[in-house]
């Protein structure tokens, strides 16, 4: 019998004895709302230890400083104005002559996002391409994951390794490979010309199609792996029971396998969709001047136009766009984690 799970003990009183909180300790707790007293199972035994606080604080502070704080900076900058200076933006706060702090909030950048159709088109196009790419990945990845999960046991690991292997090679170079294949005098066109299927090279490069191919190619492993994980965990006897009750294999797949693999479908789709929306390298290398995607727009605003405030506003807007799928994804992840945890105990 596993010991029962330990729940946190409610009152987070200041720790007794030598580790009672110093002024800095209180300040820190107050600032972060982060407890010193952590009820622990395993390593720590309910007594308060500075070691444990340190273990928690180091990664937490790192991420707060280099991941959390930067977003506040972006948010702040999105309300300033671009100027030709170093750094190229106006300060949000300034001191007026009579010593009063002046807060200058500038909504120009957000207005621009609403008024200029360039941004609208880029947002919608990003969502559209990411959605189509996700569906393509699912259509290709599901049968692959299914086939691997049904392969003989000794082949499964090598087959999975072959899915993961491209991931370990350079992403940039894998995208580059498609330039050689898709361009006008590229391998695919040469091959089709040689076959006589076409008389003139097809314009494949610098289109939405080439961007789509690039995204599907790069993100396919992220679809296959979670799908394989759920499909391989599925109890084979469920299908046997269905067959025993008179269900034909095709119907059993639709009524049993597919619904039970939905967690994998959702996880895989999110893992493809979310990063595709903000993708920069693929639209930049494979897309044309008309392939507007939001990651590329942000890059251009920042590097070519040197307009940091507008780039920040684009970033904030993109984040707002992605917040719903990201939160859903995290919820789903937590639930799966909880389920495995319960399965263990």
């Amino acid at each position: 019998m596993m010991p029962p799970p330990v729940h946190p003990q409610v009152p987070l009183s200041p720790p007794p004895g030598p580790s009672s909180p110093t002024l800095i300790g209180y300040l820190w707790r107050w600032l972060l709302g982060f407890p010193f007293v952590v009820r622990v199972r395993g390593l720590a035994m309910g007594t308060v230890s500075w070691g444990r606080a340190l273990v928690t604080a180091v990664p937490f502070l790192w991420l707060l400083l280099f991941f959390g704080l930067p977003f506040l900076v972006v948010l702040k900058l999105s309300f300033s104005q671009a100027v030709l200076a170093q750094p190229p933006y106006t300060p949000l706060f300034s001191w007026a002559e009579d010593g009063i702090m002046v807060l200058r909030i500038n909504f120009q950048n957000y207005l621009l996002l609403v008024q200029d159709s360039l941004y609208w088109v880029a947002y919608l196009n990003s969502l559209r391409i990411a959605a189509i790419a996700t569906v393509c990945c699912l259509l290709l990845g599901y049968p692959m994951a299914y086939a691997i999960s049904k392969a003989k046991a000794e082949f499964r690991i090598p087959l999975l390794m072959l899915i993961i292997l491209p991931f370990w090679t350079s992403f940039l170079i894998r995208v580059y490979a498609w330039i050689g294949i898709l361009k006008n005098n590229g391998l695919l066109n040469n091959f089709l010309l040689w076959l006589g299927v076409i008389d003139d090279p097809l314009p494949l490069m610098h289109t939405d199609f080439s961007v789509l191919i690039g995204i599907v190619y790069s993100y396919l492993p992220f679809m296959v792996l979670p799908l394989y994980a759920t499909l391989s965990r599925m109890d084979e006897s469920l299908l046997e029971a269905a067959a025993d009750l008179g269900c034909r294999p095709g119907k059993a797949f639709l009524t049993i396998t597919l619904p039970l693999s939905m967690p994998g479908v959702i996880a895989g789709s999110m893992l493809v969709f979310i990063p595709s929306v903000g993708e920069f390298v693929i639209p930049d290398l494979l897309g044309g001047p008309n392939t507007l995607m939001i990651g590329k727009v942000l890059w251009t605003e920042f590097f070519s136009n040197k307009d940091w405030p507008v780039a920040s506003a684009v970033a904030v807007a993109t984040l707002l766009l992605l917040v719903v799928p990201i939160v859903r994804f995290q919820k789903a992840q937590e639930e799966t984690a909880k389920k495995t945890e319960e399965g263990r105990t």
Binding site: M1, P3, P4, V6, Q9, M45, G46
Partner: peptide
């Protein structure tokens, strides 16, 4: 029976849990 608290009592003797 399982869940009657016997293991928790034992773990408190070992020091792996602290009594309230």
């Amino acid at each position: 029976a399982s869940g009657c608290g016997k293991t928790t009592l034992l773990r408190m003797l070992a020091g792996l849990e602290t009594p309230d």
